[in-house]
Design a protein around this nucleic acid. Sequence first.
DNA 1: AGTTGCATCTCGAGC
DNA 2: GCTCGAGGTGCAACT
Lengths: 245, 245
Amino acid sequence: MTTPDDATRTLADPTPDAAADLVERGIETGALVTLFGRCRVDYDGRATSTLGSGDRHVMLKPDGAALVHTDEGQQPVNWQPPGCEHSVRVAEGDLVVESERSTPEEELVVTFESVAHAAAFDVTDASDLSLSGTEADLRERILDDPDLVEPSFTPLATERTTPAGAVDIYGEDDDGRTVVVELKRRRVGPDAVGQLDRYVDALARDLHDDAELRGILVAPSVTDRARELLAQKGLEFVSLSPPEA
Amino acid sequence: MTTPDDATRTLADPTPDAAADLVERGIETGALVTLFGRCRVDYDGRATSTLGSGDRHVMLKPDGAALVHTDEGQQPVNWQPPGCEHSVRVAEGDLVVESERSTPEEELVVTFESVAHAAAFDVTDASDLSLSGTEADLRERILDDPDLVEPSFTPLATERTTPAGAVDIYGEDDDGRTVVVELKRRRVGPDAVGQLDRYVDALARDLHDDAELRGILVAPSVTDRARELLAQKGLEFVSLSPPEA
DNA sequence: AGTTGCATCTCGAGC
DNA sequence: GCTCGAGGTGCAACT
């Protein structure tokens, strides 16, 4: 049985040894561990980074993820992805937290000069996020009412594979011409045009049917440059957004 | 003057009112505020999401960022970017934390059934991250020793603008032919080929000099599909990684 | 404020 | 495990 005191363990201004004990136990018991204090951070792996002394918030997740947050930005200043092994030790009087993995080999080391706060939380979370307004929702909107692309458009397949990748919607128009539709949930730039162009090009080679092939980019809007590229490549644009709800 | 007690304020199993006071004061004083407890999360803005009851860690940063973390994943399950206005209130006995912004209009609401922990940390962090192994480092490596691309390659400009965007390195080869170099710090797929192709294409139109134009993708490696696309487009590949240090 | 492309992108799906 | 593309991508640089 878990009482509130068991579920959450916290320490204010702990000694390095006391903090290490809490973190160690937290890692072992699958808790979500947080630390706040003055620290340095070193990372080596896909890239290499160093960060001098400053106050940061460190989170160690039971799935192996590690996050180091400063007072600014949505993104952690340093991190380690899920699947890592966390460990903690005291070295030369400093609390040292490490998180490492292989494939690729990479390691994160946080060295605390001082720890202002340490906590371990037992987490129970069975809920899944329900998200709407995605590209998948836009696809459903079109499959429900293909005329939104153009009158008499007929979807034949989704995620149809081509030598260049999977086409969002593959179908044909009123005149029986093959249509490749690329969907984007938001305003698009040149990259999306390049993507559609790759698919159309690949399918043209596959079908030996270049003249009868159309490519349509469906998105809320396009940038100027994207519009120019569409024109250059002979591709089309239809303005459509994901459903509100 | 700031004592350790001033710098860090924490509450265990606080009442909603006590937690609200701490959060309110933390927001006002520019502290980094964290909460842990059972909550629901609702977001509406660029998309829409709901998340049922579960134990999560919430961080409110003084720059206006908000993060909601579950026990899994490197990414927050919900968030709000920097620049938002945080607010807190007690409604029907629940602690409710809100974070909102305009342009685009979006709002995050976290409703706590129970709060296990609340904390406010005063943050001092003057250090900047030093990162190496980036695309910029790869570019420097080539500018230092252009022969790494090919013997007698001569860089003429970086970030040269074309109608399709900026070229990483623009130069010429031994025979005076124009060379467009696209850099990637890691293994690349079809998207990078499309990008290089766009630049070469745009520059060809600009220079009216199609035959003498070469495109070289410089990266550690390429996927099979990317290699096929390179061949189709008449583009080249040179294997090179960012420097180790 | 809008555009463009990088990122230790992360994440999920498919293979 | 790798590949590929979406993402409420975030983020900086530039216009």
